[in-house]
Each structure stands twice: as C-alpha cells, then as structure tokens.
Nucleic acid binder design. Structure first.
Lengths: 234, 234
DNA sequence: TATCCTCAACTGGTCGGACCACCCGACAAG
DNA sequence: CTTGTCGGGTGGTCCGACCAGTTGAGGATA
C-alpha cells in the first residue's frame, strides 16, 4: 500500500466546506441570515439541489438553523450544536486555539481514566494479552507519529474491553477529531523513548482487576500530557 | 402557556423516522442494501428529493453509508456511528433495553464526577450561590418529575461552571437524550423526599475548592443510581 | 395617531423528469 | 485464468415549476 485513495469531493461537500469556513472565520456571526438558497446557487455556480444538500448537512451538524419561509440563519455552534461538530469546527490544517486544546486535553484525562477503570472490571485474559501486545509494539516504535497511532489503538482497545456501547459511541467521535487533527496532539509523543510506565502500570492493574489502580495510572498519563502542553505552549 | 407548538413533520422527516425504525427493528441488518432511492420514492409515494434528504440525514447520523454507483447500505450503528445517533436510536416511547440503560448510567457516573471535579477548580462565589439556589428548589420540590428537571439543571449548571467548551458540547448531546427519554430515568427520583446529601456535599466541596471531595460526592450519587436500577430492574 | 388586516414578495419544501458519473456483473477476447 | 468491454442499475447534479410558510410594507379601520 503506497498510494492513498483519491478523495473525490462532491459539489455539495465543497459548498459545505466553504460555508463552514465562512462561519468559522466570522464572515457570518451567530444569528446572521445566510443568503437564500437560490442566490447561493448562482454565486457558487451550482444547482439549488446541491446547495440544499449542503444546508442539510450544516443543519444536522448544528451550525445553521433552517426554517421554511424565513431565512436560514447561523446558530451559535458551541451553544446549540452537538458534539459531532467538533471535527468540523477544527478544520484540518488550521491552528487550534490554545484554550480549546486545553479543554480537549482535560476531557482526554477523563476518558483515559474512566476507560481504564471500566476495562479493569470487565477484561478477559485475551483482552489483557491484546493490550500487552500493543505495549510491545509501542516499545519497538521509533517515531512519534507511529507511537501516536498505536497509543490511540491502545485507547480504542481499552474502550472495547470496557464493553459499554455508549462509551463506544463517544470514541467514534473522538476518532474523528483525532483523525483530522492528530498533528495538533503530536507533541504528546515527541519525547522518545516514549515513557511507557503509565501504560504498563495500567495493564498490570487491569490484569489484576484493580479498577482504581488502572484509573490512577491512565489519569497520571493524561495529566502528564496536560503539563507538557502548558510548558510547550509558551 | 398551556399548549405546545404544533410540530409539523416534513415529508423527509417522516421518511427518516420510518427507515430508522426499520433499521432499529432489524428489518435491515448491518451491511444490508436499502432499496434504491427511486424505488423508495414510489413506495413512500413522495418525490425522490425527499428520499434523498432523508438519506443524507441518515448518513450524517452514521446509520447508513451512501456511495455513488453502489447501493446505500446500512452501517452498524454502534460501530461506525457518532454519539449523536443515540437520541435517535432510542425512539421516544420505546422501551430501553436494560443493557443500554446500564451503559448510560455508567457514563452518567463518569460525567457527574468529572463535572463536579472541574467545577470545584473554577467556581466563583456567584456560581456557588446559583448552585445553592438550585439545591433549595430541589428541597421544596414535591414530585419526582420536578426533581428530575431541577437535577438536570443542576448538572448543566455544573458543566457551565467548569468552563470547558468540549464538555459543553457533550452536555448538549446528553440533553437531547434526556429530553426525549427522561421517563426512562425517572425511577432515579421516585424516592421522596429525595436524598440531597450528595448534592449538598458536592456544593460544599466546590465552595471550598476541593476537587476530589466534589468528585467523590457526585460519584457516590451516581453509583446510588446504578444500584437503584439493578434492584429496580428485576 | 395607533391598531389591525391584507397582500405581494420573499423564504424554504416538494415535485417530476432529464442527464451525468460511477459501480458492478456478465460475457467475450486474449 | 486474466483482461477488456459493455449494459443496466445506483447515486449525483441539473433544470424549471409549483406549494407552503414568513415577513414587512402599506392601506383600512377605530
């Protein structure tokens, strides 16, 4: 596998991107009316159907509010929107403002700790073996990017072990964020050799069924990341 | 205000509901192809545009996967879908299967504890006053439904106090779930007088800036709910 | 003057029918 | 067995028309 799949952008997807960017960059503020579908169609040089498709996507993401008869208006994204907008709020390539990254890392600590705690309660010997295997490949990995990938696999594995369907849904969202913006979090892994002690402690605790221990280990790991960000940010 | 606003269902919304239900009820399983848009249009007796709109919604929710040239197929909702499908997975009025409720309550504990912990770190005197006011109205409330409403307000307040934008996004999702399915969780509040001690401890800890104490109090409260469900379920 | 009603000119929602781009499976050619 | 072709089906886009709510300006009314 050398070449990636070519990404074909539908017309509607390009329109979505353009409007989303315009909103994020502040051309349209909260509550502002967007141009009518017919006008956007001529502006973009596409058919109204495509504009409609774009608007529908933006609405299900919670970025705009559509109402028959009235204009389609921008909605305050962080107020009314669902979680799923996050991946789209942070456009790939954009800089992430520091405050938001803070918030994300804080949430990360919560998920790491909780996931480990749940996993310790429900792990089978096979689960533990799989986790140890991932540890081993992290030890062997030599560059930050690879470690990051494996670490996220480790996390996903932890979630799967926890066997909580709702938590799995959350992870899917996190994966989207991560997949689009992994570069912003790469600094968490640039220290090589990567300090694996927390992971090792966590796996040991999980193997022993020690929920509190597993949670503490992963929590410590997460907080180390927060600290790294603070000193790294200035 | 006695009467609620009449809810007008767009054609596409009805189609979305019908297809969603068909998927949830198992008429279409993971990976199954849905009928073509043209066929669905004649079956539902509507235009293809409406079917397309419905499909787009289902796709952004992660329930189906659309690909040009090939058939639109059902996607395993709990595998590939984002969090935002949860409100739609549990249709209002449906029974909630016990396992899922277990999972939800488990997540609830995590959020309660974490939210309280964060709040303790960032609360201002005004925040504390607002929380105490909510406590007071819970004391005065006499029926379970009212208590439930206030308790969720309390939680939202806690989130706001934490001042974490990402956590706020999560709450928006939870609110949707809660709003549509509060009845399933009503059993958490049927004990009257409602035991407020955990809330009181949490607020006290928040006022004192004691993160660990606040987390422990709300965690205990959440775990009491889990226990109630287990004994209530059989 | 102040209030209400009416109506025209928007907006989004639905319709139907056409054609394009793409995928797949059948089948022929090598 | 592999490769190439092609036809029929699927979603993607386009067009133009009409339906259904919303809004606001201007006139009728008190």
């Amino acid at each position: 596998m050398v070449f990636e799949r070519v990404r074909k952008l539908k017309v509607a997807e390009q329109v979505v991107g353009a409007i989303r960017d315009a909103i994020i960059r502040g051309h349209y503020k909260e509550g502002d009316p967007l141009p009518s579908e017919r006008e956007l169609a001529t502006q973009f040089g596409v058919n109204r159907s495509s504009i409609r498709e774009a608007m529908l996507r933006l609405e299900t993401w919670g970025l705009v509010h559509i109402r028959q008869g009235g204009a389609t208006r921008v909605r305050d994204a962080l107020q009314g929107a669902g979680l799923h907008v996050l991946p789209y709020l942070v456009a790939p390539g954009d800089r992430l403002d520091t405050g938001l990254l803070d918030d994300i890392l804080s949430i990360r600590v919560m998920f790491l700790a909780w996931t480990a705690e749940r996993a310790a309660a429900t792990a089978t010997p096979e689960d533990v073996a799989a986790l140890e295997e991932l540890l081993e490949s992290m030890r062997r990995a030599s560059d930050a990017e690879r470690i990051q990938t494996i670490d996220f696999e480790f996390f996903e594995r932890l979630v799967a072990v926890g066997r909580n369907r709702v938590l799995t849904l959350f992870t899917n969202v996190l994966r989207e964020i991560y997949g689009n913006n992994g570069a912003h979090l790469l600094f968490l892994y640039t220290q090589v050799p990567f300090d694996l002690s927390a992971h090792e402690q966590a796996v040991a605790a999980i193997a022993a069924g020690d929920s509190a221990g597993a949670a503490a280990a992963m929590r410590a790991y997460g907080e180390r990341g927060q600290k790294a960000h603070r000193s790294h940010g200035e």
